[in-house]
Design a protein around this nucleic acid. Structure first.
Lengths: 347, 347
DNA sequence: ATGAAAGCGCTAACAG
DNA sequence: CTGTTAGCGCTTTCAT
């Protein structure tokens, strides 16, 4: 048997280049080169230098697919959002991406859409990549999906909600408590007839319901009524929905002096419509939003709203996943990150 | 030698399950099972049914890492944005994710930040995954990065800009032409003293410069001046920047009757500040934005702005990448998607 | 239409 | 500290 012909080197530098090539250039075994790259402390100064030189010269970039397959660590984390349009989850995705990148992990983004149909295909695509973790914004709806995720054994962090039965880990807050707190805030500010405008997504609805219940309890509904005036608008919410929402509410019986909007965008629409109609804020109408988007403080009047620490959620979720990926346990798997009512001028 | 002990099956269903297990269950060779899954047309009805049954029963999900390694097709596409916060690129990322998902590709999201420092590490992480394509929003700045990308041989689509020397493929529009068109629009509307508020990012700056030059040419600057009043604000732009921007401009010498804002957010801030100061829009001041964000049509007055088909950009970029991934050539590698001036009430 | 063998590029496990 | 060996789970190539 003759020795095999030397492997034909591809023309492009960096393409088709493997660890073997680098190792050969550095005069060491592939595994040694691997160690020089991944656990530099485990090799001698000399070897380290030679390998780094070889990498530098060739422009070698390790194949993470191969590495992931061999080590069963993909350094990939999947994030699922209903939709990326709509600024609510943005802050979370942003900080998640950053926190992960800092630790050498990449983010894979999936949009589940607001219907269930895509969820299954998406889940399959995710599990197929064997990510080191999955971050869910909002709760996975279909029980089937939840089961598959659980079965896959991949660390999961649910966010932006609290649930009695988390799949695995969770960092969120109570939408019910927000509804209650907002009603109380409005009541404390002297408002006596309130209404709510909410997008038809499940969490908004829960905030609205809790708000309505508490408002009724505090006597802020028309006597005898079991709920306050509501206006449901399509998700994702828009400025336009806020405008028509207020118009709708104003058209209903009974004057209102306060309105809770399920998003800051909606609240801004309400403010614009109020201005157009000559309804003074806050004297005639108090407005509260949800989300504390960056523009809210710059409105006129400044918007009183509920702040969620989206960045904190992202960071914590990243930490949870990374802890698990490195084989450590996460002692407090459920974290209530709470919320803050930001008092500004619109109430 | 004795036969090795049977492999211990992991407890969790779906975990550690391989194609071999499925094949065994279906009574075929692994490769046949593989074909049943990937190229169903290449196997008999009988085999197809048996394999599908086995998959169903076991909850098997193919390991895409292994598949990608063997086939050199990762079905992964990387997208790089400066930051995901800031609604400009959202539409593009959204449609990109969807179009890719429909074709069985996943999106990996990277944020380069507005400085160059992270770009290199990010690029390494991206190339390491051997994606089937990379979509860049805005141009990669460092020449080093561009070179590495080119060397990697990965299909690249640059977006949101036009450049004489694209790395590979490109779908964008001319920021210069937008500046010119906006100046002309304002001029045609009878404005004679215009100004510009722009974020300090490179593309905004180019729009602003082209706008200024054209405005000067049309005689919309103070006689003898070589540029119109400008106010540069930090990127990403905010409502607050728009408000202070207008205040700044109003404080400068010479009354203005029109202002071009480098983003709709900025324009909205201008409108709020104008309202607070009792400056009537459009009669006293015409306002134009850029981006046509969803809220722009719902403002009062409705915002006249420049619309970019972000969804179209995402779709086209996805198509380009997919074409290449499937081995086809893309004949028109540079596509100017243009822009539209949306005439509403603020001019 | 189906299968056997080989290997993608890397790392775990075990030597030395 | 360094190297050898043996896969990770899949697909390619080449037979049958």
């Amino acid at each position: 048997m003759t020795a095999p012909a030397p492997v034909v080197r591809k023309g492009r530098k960096g393409a088709g280049l493997t660890l073997r090539d680098v190792a050969r250039l550095a005069g060491v075994a592939p595994i040694t080169a691997s160690r020089a790259l991944n656990t530099p402390d485990a090799v001698s100064e000399t070897v380290l230098k030679k390998v780094r030189e070889a990498v530098e010269r060739t422009g070698y970039v390790p194949n993470l697919l191969a590495g992931g397959l061999a080590s069963k660590k993909s350094r990939l984390v999947a994030a699922v959002v209903p939709t990326i349009v709509g600024p609510i989850f943005l802050e979370t995705v942003q900080s998640l991406t950053e926190a992960l990148a800092d630790a050498g992990y990449q983010l894979m983004l999936g949009q589940s859409g607001y219907e269930n149909s895509r969820e299954d295909a998406l889940l399959e695509a995710i599990i197929g990549r064997r990510p080191d973790g999955v971050v869910l914004t909002g709760i996975m709806r279909s029980a089937e999906s939840r089961k598959r995720l659980l079965a896959s054994g991949i660390p999961v962090v649910e966010t932006w909600d609290l649930t009695p039965t988390p799949i695995d880990m969770l960092v969120g807050f109570s939408h019910e408590r927000i509804g209650v707190a907002v009603a109380q805030h409005l009541h404390a500010a002297g408002r006596r007839r309130v209404a709510v405008i909410a997008g038809v997504d499940e969490r908004s609805r829960r905030r609205a319901r809790a708000f309505s219940d508490e408002a009724v309890r505090l006597g802020m509904a028309v006597a005898g009524r079991k709920e306050v005036p509501q206006c449901m608008v399509p998700a994702p919410t828009t400025l336009g929905s806020g405008r028509t929402g207020l118009a709708d509410l104003l058209g209903q019986d009974g004057a209102i002096d306060g309105v809770f909007c399920s998003s800051d965008i909606l609240a801004m629409g309400v403010m614009i419509e109020a201005q157009v109609r000559g309804v003074a804020i806050p004297s005639q109408l108090a407005v509260m939003g949800f989300g504390d988007l960056s523009f809210s403080r710059d409105l006129h009047p400044q918007l009183t709203t509920v702040r969620i620490d989206g960045t904190g959620i992202g960071k914590t979720a990243a930490r949870f996943i990374i802890e698990r990926a490195e084989g450590r346990e996460v002692p407090e798997r459920v974290q209530d990150i709470g919320f803050t009512i930001i008092e500004r001028q619109s109430v």
